[in-house]
Amino acid sequence: MYNTANEIIEVCKEKNCHIYDLVLVEEMKNSKKSDAEIYAQLIEIINVMEASAIENLEKSNTTNFGMTDGFSKMFFDYQKEKEPLVGKFLVRTMARAFSTAEVNDQMGKIVAAPTAGSAGIMPATIVSAKEKYGFDDETVAKGLLTSIAIGQIIAKYATFAGAEGGCQAECGSASAMAASALVTMAGGTPEQALHAASITLVNVLGLVCDPIAGLVKYPCTFRNASGVMNAFISADMALAGITSIVPFDEVAQAMGEVGRSLHESLRETGIGGLAGTKTGQRIREEFLGKNK
């Protein structure tokens, strides 16, 4: 894949194509599969994402420490009964992010895009966009292909691992990928998809990874929900013509540098941040005691 945002934009202009076209060609070359086979695989992924995003909307799960119990159903019920401050659509979207996070808690089937800790963001984005705009699977698949390019640049210059780069690398990366997918599905340009990804990462630069007891539950679940919001607002900014003065590849490099500078207690060790609070330490001690 290409190394910089400018390279991608120039090639897309030269070939009169979109980012998803470039990714598709590369995937065909690497996998030795046809475009039809690749699209069929993408639709399988979409189906898993959709299933996880709706599984817990109508039921409540329970966990040992009550960190994420029933948030999906609670939020979904809330928008049915009242007019939320941010509107029904966005609350439904966040409820879907909670749903996949809860499915993950239950060891259910999810798509880690790009990680399990951030797995609620892409599914909630896809299901909600399909609901609102009636996108078909091919349009969504093109969005996913675009998000792959965003992920490749992040992988080149930074990381997806909270243990290496904080939650900016997990929920931040997932949100950037989702924002680029949204722009693509909405008919935006390659430049707009890259700007949306840039804006998304800028919004969470420096976000630490501090899960209580080292479990991918709290605060991960909340960051999945807010990550979806980040993706939608960043996509809207880009589609409106708002740009990021720093190109996406440079934003990814900055994220990598910030991640490396974070203290180890703020990188998925379950020691600092929220994990280091009195409540966080109490839960950690109880969890470790129960699992000795």
Rank of each mutant, 00 (worst) to 15 (best):
S226T: 14
I212Y: 04
M229W: 05
T159H: 01
S198P: 06
A169S: 13
E191W: 07
T221V: 15
A213F: 01
E250G: 02
I271A: 13
L205V: 05
I212F: 02
G241C: 11
L194P: 01
L182N: 03
Y218A: 13
I242K: 09
A174N: 06
M255E: 01
V208H: 00
A163W: 06
V202Q: 15
P247R: 10
D249G: 11
P247F: 09
G187L: 14
S226L: 14
R223V: 02
A238K: 09
V251K: 00
Q168N: 02
A197Q: 10
N203E: 15
E264N: 13
G259L: 05
T159P: 10
S173T: 05
G188Q: 08
V251L: 07
A186L: 00
G172R: 10
A163S: 15
S147C: 00
Q168L: 03
E250D: 14
S261D: 15
A181L: 12
G241N: 12
M177P: 09
M185I: 04
D210H: 04
G272V: 09
A213Q: 04
E264Q: 12
V208S: 04
P219E: 03
M237T: 04
A193L: 05
K217A: 11
D236L: 14
L207Y: 10
I153A: 03
H195P: 02
E250P: 06
V204Q: 01
G162W: 00
A275I: 05
A240K: 08
P190E: 14
T200P: 08
L144Q: 06
M229E: 12
G227R: 02
A196I: 08
G143Q: 00
I233N: 08
S226P: 11
L201I: 09
H263Q: 09
I154D: 05
G166N: 07
C171L: 15
Q152N: 15
E170D: 14
A163I: 05
V258Q: 11
G206F: 07
L207H: 06
G143E: 03
C220A: 15
A174C: 12
M255G: 08
P247S: 14
I148C: 09
T221R: 03
V246F: 12
G162Y: 07
T243I: 00
S234F: 05
S261Y: 13
V208K: 04
C171Q: 06
G162A: 13
P190H: 06
A149K: 02
L201C: 10
A149C: 08
G188F: 10
L262G: 00
T146C: 15
T159A: 11
Y157N: 10
L266K: 08
I242H: 07
I212Q: 01
T159F: 10
N203Q: 15
A196Y: 09
I212W: 05
T221D: 12
A275N: 01
A235D: 01
G151K: 04
D210G: 11
S265V: 11
K142W: 07
I154H: 01
V208E: 04
S265F: 09
G172Q: 06
